[in-house]
Design a protein around this nucleic acid. Sequence first.
DNA 1: GTATATGCAAAGCGTTTGCAAATAC
DNA 2: GTATTTGCAAACGCTTTGCATATAC
Lengths: 145, 145
Amino acid sequence: MIEYPLLLEKFQTLLKENALKFTKQRELVLKFLYENNGHFTPEDIYTLLKEQHPDVNIGIATVYRTLALLETSEIASSISFGVQGKKYELGLKKHHDHLICTKCGNIIEFYDEIIEERQEEIAKKFNFQMTDHTMKITGLCEKCQ
Amino acid sequence: MIEYPLLLEKFQTLLKENALKFTKQRELVLKFLYENNGHFTPEDIYTLLKEQHPDVNIGIATVYRTLALLETSEIASSISFGVQGKKYELGLKKHHDHLICTKCGNIIEFYDEIIEERQEEIAKKFNFQMTDHTMKITGLCEKCQ
DNA sequence: GTATATGCAAAGCGTTTGCAAATAC
DNA sequence: GTATTTGCAAACGCTTTGCATATAC
Protein backbone atom coordinates (compact mmCIF):
# COMPACT_ATOMS: atom_id res chain seq x y z
CA MET A 1 0.00 0.00 0.00
CA ILE A 2 1.15 3.49 -0.81
CA GLU A 3 2.36 5.65 2.08
CA TYR A 4 0.18 8.63 2.91
CA PRO A 5 2.79 11.33 2.19
CA LEU A 6 3.25 9.89 -1.29
CA LEU A 7 -0.46 9.83 -1.94
CA LEU A 8 -0.73 13.40 -0.73
CA GLU A 9 2.06 14.44 -3.04
CA LYS A 10 0.40 12.71 -5.97
CA PHE A 11 -2.81 14.59 -5.18
CA GLN A 12 -1.05 17.93 -4.86
CA THR A 13 0.76 17.45 -8.15
CA LEU A 14 -2.49 16.61 -9.82
CA LEU A 15 -4.12 19.73 -8.41
CA LYS A 16 -1.23 21.90 -9.56
CA GLU A 17 -1.32 20.43 -13.05
CA ASN A 18 -4.97 21.37 -13.35
CA ALA A 19 -4.69 24.79 -11.75
CA LEU A 20 -6.77 23.65 -8.81
CA LYS A 21 -6.20 24.64 -5.23
CA PHE A 22 -5.09 22.52 -2.33
CA THR A 23 -7.62 23.08 0.44
CA LYS A 24 -8.19 21.73 3.96
CA GLN A 25 -11.47 20.16 2.82
CA ARG A 26 -9.93 18.36 -0.12
CA GLU A 27 -7.17 17.01 2.04
CA LEU A 28 -9.62 15.84 4.70
CA VAL A 29 -11.60 13.77 2.20
CA LEU A 30 -8.44 12.23 0.76
CA LYS A 31 -7.10 11.44 4.24
CA PHE A 32 -10.43 9.99 5.29
CA LEU A 33 -10.42 7.51 2.43
CA TYR A 34 -6.81 6.65 3.13
CA GLU A 35 -7.28 6.04 6.84
CA ASN A 36 -10.64 4.32 6.69
CA ASN A 37 -10.29 1.25 4.62
CA GLY A 38 -13.75 0.47 3.35
CA HIS A 39 -16.69 1.71 1.33
CA PHE A 40 -18.48 4.92 2.28
CA THR A 41 -21.36 7.03 1.02
CA PRO A 42 -20.78 10.77 0.60
CA GLU A 43 -23.13 11.21 3.57
CA ASP A 44 -21.01 8.85 5.72
CA ILE A 45 -17.87 10.76 4.88
CA TYR A 46 -19.53 14.11 5.52
CA THR A 47 -20.93 13.05 8.91
CA LEU A 48 -17.75 11.39 10.13
CA LEU A 49 -15.56 14.27 9.02
CA LYS A 50 -17.74 16.77 10.88
CA GLU A 51 -17.53 14.57 13.97
CA GLN A 52 -13.79 14.05 13.81
CA HIS A 53 -12.96 17.63 12.87
CA PRO A 54 -15.45 19.94 14.57
CA ASP A 55 -13.00 22.80 13.99
CA VAL A 56 -13.12 22.54 10.19
CA ASN A 57 -16.16 23.77 8.33
CA ILE A 58 -17.15 21.39 5.57
CA GLY A 59 -20.32 21.12 3.52
CA ILE A 60 -21.76 18.05 1.89
CA ALA A 61 -21.54 19.73 -1.52
CA THR A 62 -17.78 19.91 -1.11
CA VAL A 63 -17.64 16.23 -0.21
CA TYR A 64 -19.54 15.41 -3.42
CA ARG A 65 -17.33 17.73 -5.46
CA THR A 66 -14.15 16.29 -4.01
CA LEU A 67 -15.24 12.69 -4.50
CA ALA A 68 -16.05 13.41 -8.12
CA LEU A 69 -12.61 14.96 -8.52
CA LEU A 70 -10.90 12.01 -6.85
CA GLU A 71 -12.82 9.57 -9.00
CA THR A 72 -11.98 11.21 -12.32
CA SER A 73 -8.37 11.41 -11.14
CA GLU A 74 -8.48 7.70 -10.44
CA ILE A 75 -7.57 8.16 -6.80
CA ALA A 76 -10.97 6.94 -5.67
CA SER A 77 -13.51 4.61 -7.16
CA SER A 78 -17.17 3.95 -6.49
CA ILE A 79 -19.73 1.20 -6.56
CA SER A 80 -23.28 2.12 -7.41
CA PHE A 81 -26.26 0.95 -5.37
CA GLY A 82 -28.99 2.16 -7.72
CA VAL A 83 -31.42 4.61 -6.10
CA GLN A 84 -29.54 4.29 -2.82
CA GLY A 85 -26.53 6.05 -4.24
CA LYS A 86 -22.85 5.23 -4.41
CA LYS A 87 -20.13 4.12 -2.05
CA TYR A 88 -16.56 5.31 -2.47
CA GLU A 89 -13.23 3.76 -1.62
CA LEU A 90 -9.61 4.60 -2.24
CA GLY A 91 -9.09 3.49 -5.80
CA LEU A 92 -5.36 2.94 -5.94
CA LYS A 93 -5.54 -0.71 -5.12
CA LYS A 94 -5.42 -3.29 -7.83
CA HIS A 95 -8.68 -3.69 -9.73
CA HIS A 96 -11.12 -5.89 -7.88
CA ASP A 97 -14.77 -6.85 -7.80
CA HIS A 98 -17.30 -7.04 -4.98
CA LEU A 99 -19.48 -9.45 -3.07
CA ILE A 100 -22.28 -7.46 -1.43
CA CYS A 101 -24.39 -8.78 1.44
CA THR A 102 -28.00 -7.70 1.00
CA LYS A 103 -28.69 -8.13 4.73
CA CYS A 104 -25.82 -6.43 6.57
CA GLY A 105 -24.48 -4.38 3.68
CA ASN A 106 -20.99 -5.73 4.17
CA ILE A 107 -18.75 -5.65 1.10
CA ILE A 108 -16.09 -8.26 0.38
CA GLU A 109 -13.50 -7.59 -2.30
CA PHE A 110 -12.12 -10.23 -4.61
CA TYR A 111 -9.96 -10.51 -7.65
CA ASP A 112 -10.11 -13.34 -10.15
CA GLU A 113 -7.64 -13.63 -12.95
CA ILE A 114 -9.81 -15.95 -15.03
CA ILE A 115 -12.75 -13.55 -14.95
CA GLU A 116 -10.50 -10.67 -15.93
CA GLU A 117 -9.18 -12.60 -18.90
CA ARG A 118 -12.62 -13.66 -20.06
CA GLN A 119 -13.76 -10.06 -19.98
CA GLU A 120 -10.95 -9.04 -22.28
CA GLU A 121 -11.84 -11.84 -24.65
CA ILE A 122 -15.52 -10.98 -24.67
CA ALA A 123 -14.78 -7.33 -25.43
CA LYS A 124 -12.52 -8.43 -28.26
CA LYS A 125 -15.15 -10.76 -29.66
CA PHE A 126 -17.65 -7.89 -29.98
CA ASN A 127 -15.02 -5.40 -31.21
CA PHE A 128 -15.76 -3.45 -28.10
CA GLN A 129 -13.17 -1.06 -26.73
CA MET A 130 -13.43 -1.72 -22.99
CA THR A 131 -12.74 1.19 -20.67
CA ASP A 132 -14.17 -0.26 -17.49
CA HIS A 133 -15.89 -3.28 -16.10
CA THR A 134 -17.64 -4.10 -12.87
CA MET A 135 -18.95 -7.25 -11.41
CA LYS A 136 -21.18 -7.49 -8.38
CA ILE A 137 -22.25 -10.67 -6.67
CA THR A 138 -25.13 -10.07 -4.27
CA GLY A 139 -26.45 -12.47 -1.66
CA LEU A 140 -25.93 -13.35 1.98
CA CYS A 141 -22.54 -13.33 3.64
CA GLU A 142 -21.40 -16.12 5.93
CA LYS A 143 -22.69 -14.42 9.11
CA CYS A 144 -26.11 -13.49 7.72
CA GLN A 145 -27.22 -16.83 6.32
CA MET B 1 -38.74 -17.12 -27.51
CA ILE B 2 -42.04 -17.51 -25.69
CA GLU B 3 -45.23 -16.68 -27.64
CA TYR B 4 -47.13 -13.64 -26.40
CA PRO B 5 -50.36 -15.47 -25.48
CA LEU B 6 -48.35 -17.81 -23.28
CA LEU B 7 -46.58 -14.95 -21.58
CA LEU B 8 -49.89 -13.24 -21.03
CA GLU B 9 -51.32 -16.37 -19.49
CA LYS B 10 -48.32 -16.72 -17.20
CA PHE B 11 -48.83 -13.14 -16.08
CA GLN B 12 -52.56 -13.60 -15.51
CA THR B 13 -52.00 -16.75 -13.48
CA LEU B 14 -49.44 -14.94 -11.39
CA LEU B 15 -51.88 -12.11 -10.76
CA LYS B 16 -54.63 -14.50 -9.77
CA GLU B 17 -52.36 -16.38 -7.40
CA ASN B 18 -51.57 -13.17 -5.60
CA ALA B 19 -55.11 -11.78 -5.61
CA LEU B 20 -54.06 -8.98 -7.93
CA LYS B 21 -56.14 -7.59 -10.74
CA PHE B 22 -55.56 -7.78 -14.45
CA THR B 23 -55.75 -4.23 -15.77
CA LYS B 24 -55.28 -2.54 -19.16
CA GLN B 25 -52.29 -0.65 -17.80
CA ARG B 26 -50.55 -3.76 -16.55
CA GLU B 27 -51.11 -5.52 -19.82
CA LEU B 28 -49.80 -2.56 -21.80
CA VAL B 29 -46.51 -2.53 -19.93
CA LEU B 30 -46.08 -6.27 -20.36
CA LYS B 31 -46.90 -6.09 -24.05
CA PHE B 32 -44.56 -3.17 -24.52
CA LEU B 33 -41.63 -5.12 -23.12
CA TYR B 34 -42.57 -8.12 -25.21
CA GLU B 35 -42.87 -6.22 -28.46
CA ASN B 36 -39.94 -3.90 -28.02
CA ASN B 37 -36.87 -5.97 -27.65
CA GLY B 38 -34.41 -3.80 -25.80
CA HIS B 39 -33.70 -1.85 -22.66
CA PHE B 40 -35.99 0.98 -21.56
CA THR B 41 -36.27 3.45 -18.71
CA PRO B 42 -39.65 3.80 -16.96
CA GLU B 43 -39.86 7.24 -18.55
CA ASP B 44 -39.27 5.74 -22.03
CA ILE B 45 -42.01 3.21 -21.51
CA TYR B 46 -44.40 5.81 -20.13
CA THR B 47 -43.82 8.23 -23.01
CA LEU B 48 -44.03 5.62 -25.74
CA LEU B 49 -47.15 4.03 -24.29
CA LYS B 50 -48.91 7.38 -24.13
CA GLU B 51 -47.93 8.01 -27.76
CA GLN B 52 -49.00 4.61 -29.00
CA HIS B 53 -52.21 4.44 -26.96
CA PRO B 54 -53.62 7.94 -26.64
CA ASP B 55 -56.95 6.37 -25.74
CA VAL B 56 -55.66 4.70 -22.58
CA ASN B 57 -54.94 6.79 -19.52
CA ILE B 58 -51.74 5.74 -17.85
CA GLY B 59 -49.62 7.48 -15.21
CA ILE B 60 -45.92 7.14 -14.67
CA ALA B 61 -46.53 5.88 -11.14
CA THR B 62 -48.36 2.90 -12.61
CA VAL B 63 -45.46 2.20 -14.94
CA TYR B 64 -43.08 2.17 -11.98
CA ARG B 65 -45.44 0.00 -9.96
CA THR B 66 -45.92 -2.46 -12.80
CA LEU B 67 -42.21 -2.71 -13.56
CA ALA B 68 -41.50 -3.46 -9.90
CA LEU B 69 -44.18 -6.15 -10.00
CA LEU B 70 -42.78 -7.65 -13.19
CA GLU B 71 -39.29 -7.62 -11.78
CA THR B 72 -40.15 -9.39 -8.52
CA SER B 73 -42.14 -11.87 -10.58
CA GLU B 74 -39.06 -12.46 -12.70
CA ILE B 75 -40.85 -11.50 -15.88
CA ALA B 76 -38.71 -8.42 -16.29
CA SER B 77 -35.21 -7.53 -15.19
CA SER B 78 -33.30 -4.30 -14.90
CA ILE B 79 -29.82 -2.88 -15.19
CA SER B 80 -28.91 0.04 -13.00
CA PHE B 81 -27.21 3.16 -14.33
CA GLY B 82 -26.49 4.80 -10.99
CA VAL B 83 -28.05 8.23 -10.57
CA GLN B 84 -29.45 8.00 -14.08
CA GLY B 85 -31.88 5.29 -13.08
CA LYS B 86 -32.62 1.82 -14.36
CA LYS B 87 -33.43 0.25 -17.69
CA TYR B 88 -35.83 -2.66 -17.96
CA GLU B 89 -36.10 -5.55 -20.37
CA LEU B 90 -38.15 -8.70 -20.60
CA GLY B 91 -36.43 -11.03 -18.18
CA LEU B 92 -37.50 -14.42 -19.42
CA LYS B 93 -34.42 -14.94 -21.50
CA LYS B 94 -31.52 -16.93 -20.20
CA HIS B 95 -29.33 -15.04 -17.76
CA HIS B 96 -26.89 -12.75 -19.54
CA ASP B 97 -24.56 -9.84 -18.92
CA HIS B 98 -24.12 -6.52 -20.72
CA LEU B 99 -21.67 -4.51 -22.75
CA ILE B 100 -22.68 -0.85 -22.54
CA CYS B 101 -21.47 1.80 -24.94
CA THR B 102 -20.79 5.03 -23.08
CA LYS B 103 -21.17 7.08 -26.26
CA CYS B 104 -24.34 5.86 -27.97
CA GLY B 105 -25.88 4.05 -25.00
CA ASN B 106 -26.29 0.88 -26.98
CA ILE B 107 -26.43 -2.32 -24.96
CA ILE B 108 -25.09 -5.65 -26.19
CA GLU B 109 -25.98 -8.82 -24.36
CA PHE B 110 -23.63 -11.72 -23.84
CA TYR B 111 -23.42 -14.96 -21.96
CA ASP B 112 -20.22 -16.66 -20.93
CA GLU B 113 -20.22 -20.05 -19.30
CA ILE B 114 -16.73 -19.70 -17.86
CA ILE B 115 -17.59 -16.45 -16.11
CA GLU B 116 -20.76 -18.01 -14.71
CA GLU B 117 -18.79 -20.93 -13.30
CA ARG B 118 -16.12 -18.75 -11.77
CA GLN B 119 -18.77 -16.69 -10.03
CA GLU B 120 -20.17 -19.80 -8.38
CA GLU B 121 -16.71 -20.80 -7.25
CA ILE B 122 -15.91 -17.37 -5.85
CA ALA B 123 -19.15 -17.32 -3.87
CA LYS B 124 -18.34 -20.77 -2.51
CA LYS B 125 -14.82 -19.72 -1.55
CA PHE B 126 -16.20 -16.89 0.63
CA ASN B 127 -19.08 -18.99 2.00
CA PHE B 128 -21.33 -16.50 0.34
CA GLN B 129 -24.87 -17.50 -0.57
CA MET B 130 -25.25 -15.90 -3.99
CA THR B 131 -28.72 -14.71 -4.97
CA ASP B 132 -27.76 -12.58 -7.93
CA HIS B 133 -24.83 -11.35 -9.93
CA THR B 134 -24.33 -8.72 -12.56
CA MET B 135 -21.48 -7.87 -14.77
CA LYS B 136 -21.16 -4.73 -16.86
CA ILE B 137 -18.46 -3.97 -19.35
CA THR B 138 -18.45 -0.31 -20.35
CA GLY B 139 -16.56 1.25 -23.22
CA LEU B 140 -17.02 2.08 -26.87
CA CYS B 141 -18.91 -0.13 -29.27
CA GLU B 142 -17.60 -0.91 -32.72
CA LYS B 143 -19.45 2.00 -34.39
CA CYS B 144 -18.44 4.61 -31.82
CA GLN B 145 -14.70 4.05 -31.70
C1' DG C 1 -5.27 40.95 -6.08
C1' DT C 2 -7.38 37.43 -8.64
C1' DA C 3 -9.23 33.20 -9.62
C1' DT C 4 -10.77 29.18 -7.51
C1' DA C 5 -13.28 26.82 -3.74
C1' DT C 6 -16.41 26.92 -0.27
C1' DG C 7 -20.98 26.61 2.48
C1' DC C 8 -25.53 27.25 2.15
C1' DA C 9 -29.95 26.79 0.44
C1' DA C 10 -32.55 26.04 -3.48
C1' DA C 11 -33.29 23.31 -7.44
C1' DG C 12 -32.94 18.94 -10.00
C1' DC C 13 -34.10 14.37 -11.10
C1' DG C 14 -35.66 9.71 -10.76
C1' DT C 15 -38.67 7.41 -7.73
C1' DT C 16 -42.25 6.59 -4.16
C1' DT C 17 -46.43 7.53 -1.66
C1' DG C 18 -51.07 9.33 0.18
C1' DC C 19 -55.43 9.81 -1.33
C1' DA C 20 -59.88 10.11 -3.51
C1' DA C 21 -61.90 8.33 -7.66
C1' DA C 22 -62.14 4.44 -10.89
C1' DT C 23 -62.22 -0.31 -11.94
C1' DA C 24 -61.78 -5.54 -11.77
C1' DC C 25 -63.92 -9.27 -10.04
C1' DG D 1 -70.43 -4.41 -3.42
C1' DT D 2 -65.79 -4.61 -2.08
C1' DA D 3 -61.07 -4.62 -2.42
C1' DT D 4 -57.54 -3.41 -5.44
C1' DT D 5 -55.64 -0.17 -8.73
C1' DT D 6 -55.32 3.99 -10.73
C1' DG D 7 -53.78 9.04 -11.80
C1' DC D 8 -52.41 12.95 -9.75
C1' DA D 9 -49.64 15.78 -7.12
C1' DA D 10 -46.91 16.10 -3.31
C1' DA D 11 -43.05 14.17 -0.92
C1' DC D 12 -38.83 11.72 -1.05
C1' DG D 13 -33.64 10.92 -1.06
C1' DC D 14 -29.55 11.59 -3.35
C1' DT D 15 -27.08 14.84 -6.03
C1' DT D 16 -26.03 19.21 -8.35
C1' DT D 17 -25.97 24.12 -8.84
C1' DG D 18 -26.19 29.40 -8.22
C1' DC D 19 -24.34 32.66 -5.60
C1' DA D 20 -22.10 35.55 -2.31
C1' DT D 21 -18.25 34.94 0.76
C1' DA D 22 -13.83 32.95 1.92
C1' DT D 23 -9.44 31.31 0.70
C1' DA D 24 -5.22 29.62 -1.88
C1' DC D 25 -1.78 31.27 -4.48
